[in-house]
Design a protein around this nucleic acid. Structure first.
Lengths: 194, 194
DNA sequence: TCTTTTATTGTCACATTTGACAGTTAAAGA
DNA sequence: TCTTTAACTGTCAAATGTGACAATAAAAGA
């Protein structure tokens, strides 16, 4: 009985609006007013459905990380069991993952992590998973490579990949996509020698 | 005649305070109040000597970039004419450049560049210089390498280097310093084949 | 001492952001 | 129609940040 709840629906709208605001203004710059305007709701409603700023941020962080994890998980699951290097690079450095809004949001989270211990730990484990997974993938193609080499190469690839993100506004242009991929390729090739 | 001006002295104090605030709170979070408190001056004085927020930010950006440029310039000038790769890596990945405060400030500038067209261009050329210089340096040791390879390797090294910065709060621990350096070394070694 | 210049303090007005809450309206079932 | 539940609106108070400016104090030279 009673009026049906729109909490789920509204929460979704609000989080999407928050997401867009973070891309444009960063986390700190995303005031409740802006989020409300972006979502087309009153500020009171934003508070009513989601809560205060802190709860809002927590929800967004979880959502973005989950989304990123799912995408990544789906990606590495789609890779073949052997000869994985080429499609790995293809997937990492193709335009598909270059959603500008997503990049700016990730960048905002990384930046905020520098000033928030909790978020830092959250992002740290998020980042660690990438490296671990790449090590695991490369091990398929180069089973005789020692673990230090694999970790160094993985770290390099991840660095190059996220560099395009964190320096996105600086290095985002097409100009840097090719060198990035080539450098990653060279790192992988360096495992051949072993 | 008249009371002697303290403009130069105070401006220095204010900029140093601003610098510390940016490391702690980011640019947007560095209010005039905080800067005043950090410098031990009244907010009115901050305005009196330096001006409003925008002028303050301009001054800090120029100072940080100049400082960074000078350090980098001095570093590459100190490198030998030949066999430059090893000392280059040594210089890049030693602890000397791992000043946590400096890293956080650079990170703040990069982040802010994502939302400010003028700053973006400023940082872009700042970043470009690193890549260009590394290409030039590597060319000494590998004169027969083609320009695309040199650019890719340079881009990779710079990415790995700045990754430690931009992901500093996430990857700053000693754990990542060794893989970073090893990966960079492998990139350089990949130029041997040519 | 007087004047000039600048440092320094203090305060007012205005805008923004946020938290809290009262009050109203809409949608369901009884 | 009545009740219940929740959506929705509006507004007030407190805190914060900023720009502007008046007023005072200090340090120099004349």
């Amino acid at each position: 009985m009673g009026r049906p709840s729109k909490k789920a629906e509204r929460t979704e709208e609000i989080l999407q609006a928050f997401y867009r605001c973070v891309a444009r203004y960063g986390i700190e710059g995303s005031t409740l007013e802006r989020i409300a305007e972006e979502s087309g709701l009153k500020r009171s409603l934003v508070r009513h459905f989601v809560g205060n700023r802190d709860e809002l941020i927590s929800l967004l962080v979880e959502r973005v990380i989950d989304q990123s994890d799912n995408q990544w998980r789906a990606f590495i699951d789609s890779l073949p069991a052997a000869q994985v290097s080429a499609p790995l690079l293809e997937g990492l450095f193709c335009d598909q993952y270059s959603d500008a809004e997503y990049i700016l949001v990730i960048e905002s989270l990384i930046f905020a992590a520098g000033r928030d211990e909790t978020l830092r730990q959250r992002m740290q484990q998020w980042l660690q998973r990438f490296t671990d997974d790449v090590v695991m993938l490369l091990q398929r193609d180069y089973p005789s490579a020692d673990i230090d080499s694999l970790e160094a190469v993985s770290f390099g690839i991840i660095s190059i990949y996220f560099n395009l993100d964190s320096l996105a506004p600086l290095a985002m242009n097409q100009h840097y996509r090719q060198p990035a991929r080539t450098a990653a390729q060279r790192l992988i090739d360096s495992l051949e020698k072993t």
